[in-house]
Computed example of a mutant assay.
Amino acid sequence: MLNIGCHLSAAKGYMNMGKEAKSIDANTFQFFTRNPRGGKAKAIDEQDVKSFLEFMKENNFSQILAHAPYTLNACSNKEETREFALNTMADDLRRMEYTPNQLYNFHPGSHVGQGVEIGIDFIVKQLNTVLTPDMTTTVLLETMAGKGTEIGRSFEELKEILDGVKLDNKMGVCMDTCHIYDGGYDIVNDLDGVLDEFDRIIGLDRLKAIHMNDSKNPFASHKDRHEKIGEGSIGFDTMVKIINHPKLQGIPILLETPNELDGYKKEIQMLRKSYTM
Score class of each variant (00 low, 15 high):
6 C>M: 01
8 L>K: 02
17 M>V: 11
37 R>N: 13
38 G>L: 06
38 G>Q: 02
46 E>D: 08
47 Q>V: 15
56 M>N: 09
60 N>M: 00
61 F>A: 01
69 P>A: 12
69 P>R: 03
70 Y>G: 12
72 L>G: 05
79 E>Q: 05
79 E>G: 02
81 T>E: 11
84 F>P: 00
84 F>S: 08
86 L>I: 10
90 A>K: 09
96 M>I: 05
103 L>V: 11
108 P>K: 14
113 G>I: 11
116 V>C: 06
118 I>L: 12
131 L>G: 12
134 D>P: 09
134 D>F: 13
136 T>L: 12
136 T>H: 12
139 V>N: 09
143 T>A: 14
143 T>I: 14
144 M>G: 13
147 K>E: 14
150 E>R: 03
153 R>T: 11
153 R>P: 06
155 F>L: 07
159 K>R: 11
163 D>L: 08
172 G>C: 01
175 M>A: 02
176 D>T: 02
187 I>W: 04
196 D>S: 04
197 E>L: 04
204 L>N: 11
205 D>W: 04
206 R>P: 01
207 L>G: 06
211 H>A: 07
212 M>A: 06
220 A>L: 00
232 G>K: 14
233 S>W: 11
237 D>I: 05
245 H>L: 13
246 P>F: 06
251 I>C: 06
257 T>S: 03
258 P>D: 12
